[in-house]
Amino acid sequence: MKHCRIALSLLLLSGAAGAAGAAISVKDGSGATVTLAQPAQRVVTLAPHATELVFAAGAGGRIVGASDYSDYPPAANAIPRIGSSSQVDAERLLALRPDLLVVWQGGNGERQLAPLRRLGVPIYRSEPKTLGDIPDDVERLGRLTGAEASAAPAAAALRARLAALVARYRGKAPVTVFYQVWDQPLYTLNGRQIVSDAIRLCGGVNVFADLAALAPAVSVEAVLQKNPEVVVRGGQAGEDAPGLAIWKRAPALLATQRGNLYTVPSDLMTRAGPRMVDGTEALCGLLEQARRKRP
């Protein structure tokens, strides 16, 4: 009965919206068309990077619910939580009467989304595969929320920063890189994951780019065999980075020999939102340090 009342409310909202003006349509990250009768007023974001994207578009004030760990910008901490990206509280979410869901294409499973889809709640899927997809998402979410006036310049600024990085690091000598997501067990990312796009922009070469899995487990022996010039670990800024201790005990590794064991804040690299441009800038600086250490 509760679901029926919510469904009726959504239908009434949809009907009232239809008279307000021309429909808004955009393509989302999956290539599907998302159509709204009017700009979204009640947005729920089901991944931290999605929350950051909506804020970057200038529509953070319209987010009525967000997933756990949506902690940036600081204003996001005041948004009610509806669960994690892997386990959403559907009752709590539906009670918020959303007119747009922004979901993580690779993280929010069909089991979570199916009941919402049956109620007709529009879903925008976001999973940028390249850095250039990030400003595209900002722009599209700006259209869906009626925030084009703020989203367009925000997207343009991100594109300008990326273009400046491309120009600065184009033609730099290649640097082989092992990107360490976690150390127990040891995980990395393949060439299709967006972090690899950042590595490529900086003139780096992901030594495990050719693996089939997006986030494959690898062995210490496999890393030693690849012998990367740089090891980069996602972690918290300023921490001791205990996950790099593996490589400090491996003096034969080129990255260890040259002192190229680095940490980049995880939130700047693993969240495919606007701050990933900051993370890419930091990563490029680290690879440039490695180049300067060459004999």
Rank of each mutant, 00 (worst) to 15 (best):
Ala78Lys: 14
Ala57Gly: 11
Ile123Gln: 11
Val195Gly: 01
Gln193Asp: 15
Val44Asp: 09
Pro295Glu: 05
Ala114Phe: 04
Gly65Ile: 10
Arg81Ser: 08
Leu261Gln: 04
Tyr179Phe: 14
Ala282Val: 10
Lys2Arg: 11
Ser84Ala: 07
Val88Asp: 00
Asn190Pro: 12
Trp104Gln: 04
Leu287Pro: 10
Ser86Cys: 00
Val44Asn: 07
Gly18Trp: 05
Pro73Val: 10
Val44Ile: 13
Pro135Gln: 07
Val138Lys: 00
Leu268Val: 11
Gly146Arg: 13
Arg233Met: 15
Arg271Cys: 03
Phe55Lys: 00
Ala32His: 10
Arg143Ala: 15
Leu186Phe: 09
Ala272Pro: 01
Tyr187Thr: 05
Leu286Val: 10
Ile123Lys: 04
Glu127Arg: 12
Ala40Asn: 07
Ile79Val: 15
Ile194Asp: 03
Val218Arg: 12
Ala151Cys: 11
Arg170Gly: 15
Tyr179Cys: 03
Tyr69Cys: 05
Val220Phe: 06
Ala57Phe: 06
Leu10Arg: 14
Leu286Pro: 07
Val218Glu: 11
Ala154Arg: 12
Asp71Glu: 13
Val205Thr: 11
Leu93Glu: 03
Ala163Gln: 14
Ala23Asn: 07
Pro80Asn: 10
Val138Ile: 14
Ala47Pro: 05
Gly243Ile: 04
Lys293Cys: 00
Glu52Gly: 01
Gln289Asn: 09
Glu288Arg: 07
Leu268Glu: 14
Arg271His: 11
Phe55Ser: 00
Val181Gly: 13
Leu253Ser: 03
Val232Asn: 04
Asp210Ser: 13
Pro122Cys: 05
Arg143Cys: 08
Ala217Lys: 15
Asp133Asn: 14
